[in-house]
C-alpha cells in the first residue's frame, strides 16, 4: 500500500524543490528513486487480480458448503431478509458511477467538483457499511451457528473490511487534495482507489447473488 503515496506529482513547469509535506521531503535512502517512472497502476492491477482470488476461493467454499453440508440454516432460521440489503446494494453499485464522475472531474482539473463527487462516494460507502452493521445486529444467528453462519459472516465481513479500506484510502486522498499539487495532475493514486472501489462493488454483486439471491437449496 505504501506505493500509493508514491506519485511525487509536481505541476509541470515547477522545479522539483522538495515540498515540506510531500514524500520528497524525507531525505531517506529512498530519495533517489523519486526519478523512476511510476508503475503504480500496473502493480495495483496485478494486486487486485490476486486479491480477487481470495474472494473466489471463499465463494467456492461457500458454494461447496451450501450444496453439500448436511446442516445448512441453523434451527429456527428461515433465510436472509433481502429488502434492506438490496437497497444497500443499489447504493453501493451506484457509487461506482459517482466515483467515476469524481475521477473525470479530476482529469478535467476541476478540483472542487472532484471533491464533491469524492465525498458523495464516501457517503454512499459509509451508508453501506452502516447498513451492514445494522443488519448484522439484527440477524438471528451468530458466527458459531453452523457452517452457514460462519460462511455468511466471513464473506460479508471480509468484504466489509475492503469497503472500510476503500473509505480510508478515499479519506486519505481527500485530505491530500486539499494541498494543491499533491493529487493533480496525474492522480495515479485516485485512479487506483477508484479501481479498487469498482473491484469492491463487483465482488459485492457476486456475493449478493450467492448469499441473498441463491437462498433455496
Amino acid at each position: 500500500m505504501t506505493s500509493l503515496s508514491q506519485p511525487a506529482a509536481t505541476p509541470p513547469g515547477t522545479p522539483a524543490l522538495p515540498s515540506p509535506i510531500g514524500p520528497e521531503h524525507d531525505p531517506g535512502p529512498s530519495h533517489a528513486h523519486g526519478a523512476h517512472p511510476d508503475h503504480t497502476l500496473t502493480g495495483f492491477v496485478i494486486f487486485l487480480a490476486s486479491e480477487s482470488l481470495i474472494f473466489l476461493a471463499l465463494f467456492v467454499g461457500y458454494a461447496v458448503f451450501k450444496s453439500s453440508a448436511p446442516l445448512w440454516l441453523p434451527a429456527g432460521v428461515e433465510g436472509l431478509e433481502v429488502r434492506e440489503p438490496l437497497i444497500n446494494t443499489v447504493v453501493l453499485v451506484s457509487s461506482s458511477l459517482v466515483i467515476w464522475l469524481a475521477e473525470r472531474a479530476l482529469h478535467r482539473q476541476r478540483l472542487g467538483e472532484f471533491r464533491a463527487w469524492w465525498l458523495l462516494t464516501m457517503a454512499m460507502g459509509t451508508y453501506f457499511v452502516v447498513g451492514q452493521a445494522i443488519e448484522w445486529q439484527h440477524l438471528p444467528f451468530g458466527l458459531a451457528s453452523g457452517v452457514f453462519g460462519a460462511s455468511f459472516y466471513l464473506l460479508t465481513g471480509f468484504h466489509g473490511l475492503h469497503v472500510l479500506t476503500g473509505l480510508a484510502l478515499m479519506a486519505f486522498f481527500l485530505v491530500r487534495s486539499l494541498r494543491p499539487g499533491l493529487v493533480l495532475p496525474e492522480g495515479k493514486g485516485v485512479v487506483a482507489v477508484s479501481l479498487f472501489w469498482h473491484f469492491v462493488d463487483v465482488i459485492w454483486v457476486v456475493l449478493f447473488v450467492l448469499t441473498y439471491v441463491w437462498q433455496r437449496r
Partner: peptide, 8 residues
C-alpha cells in the same frame, strides 16, 4: 511516464 521524470 511519471510527472517527476519531466523535471530537469
Amino acid at each position: 511516464m511519471a510527472s517527476s521524470s519531466t523535471t530537469s
